[in-house]
Amino acid sequence: MANKQKDEVQFGEQLTSRGQFLRSALTSGPGIFWVVFFLLVPLVSIAVISFLSRGMYGEIQRPFTLENFKRFIGFGLFGYDPLYPLIVLRSLVLGAATTILCVLGGLPLAFFIGAMPVRFKNMALTLVLIPFWTNLLIRTYAWQILLAPENPLAKLLVLLHLSSPGEPLYPSAFAIYIGMVCDYLPFLVMPLYASVEKIDWSIAEAAMDLGADGWRVFWHAVLPQVVPGLVAGIILVFIPAMGQFVIPDLLGGAKTVMLGNAIQQQFLQSRDWPFGSAITFLAMTLVMLSLWLYARSAGEKGGDIL
């Protein structure tokens, strides 16, 4: 178009398109350069490395190969072994289950804070913010103490016949789930609560006047209004939960290896970076896929994540 070259006035300031570019370069330039060079290029290089081979001493070398992906699907040196597909499945289940449990807990908690009288609301909110900002590592390893057989919680569970005396509570899948929900609950509550505060309650009251009972009012008149916050919360929980490495590492055992642990093993222990890169590349693809699915289903409705 001819008028693309035309000057423009933005925020009271007249700029040529050359000026636009110059200003961009001076303001956004350094940040863009940094993020592209130190983040985008590394992510792309991971994708490239995943097609390379491992040398004798763990070095990365040619030829280009699909071997890593074949091995990932399960066709290794010793016949078919679905180890990694199972890890993916386990991670997806862990991510999904954590998300569902956090939603089930987060909904009442967010509405509880929303219903607090103004004087105590800030306190109730701060009480969620503190675990939100407290180091995840600390909150995770603490469960090792809490679930230790000699401490009261384990004894209580035995007393209630919820666990047997000989069987330790951790390392176990149970411990991982406890740790996951405990760590990620605040991440779901925060954005959800922001939506709860914006609810137009007159809609619920109107539904009430029209004779709808409590659950139907909640389902049809209240829940739809908190969808943006709920979606933001779900993204903030599901994706990091799926890639978690610390929590399964500290609370799980050999039987509960997740994607994050598999990546860590390849990079730091086996020193097979090409294969580790392949796992990382697939994890990345999985994340992008879930985000794409979300973006497609949410369309314009989805709010900003932050």
């Binding site: 130190f38 992510l43 991971i46 990546i263 990079f267 990345m284 985000l291 994540i305």
Partner: peptide, 20 residues
């Protein structure tokens, strides 16, 4: 692109930087 660090699992970012 800016949303990558927000949504991507830490470990992906970590190993990407390590290899780079």
């Amino acid at each position: 692109l800016m949303y990558i660090p927000v949504v991507i699992p830490d470990i992906v970012m970590a190993v990407a930087m390590l290899s780079f």
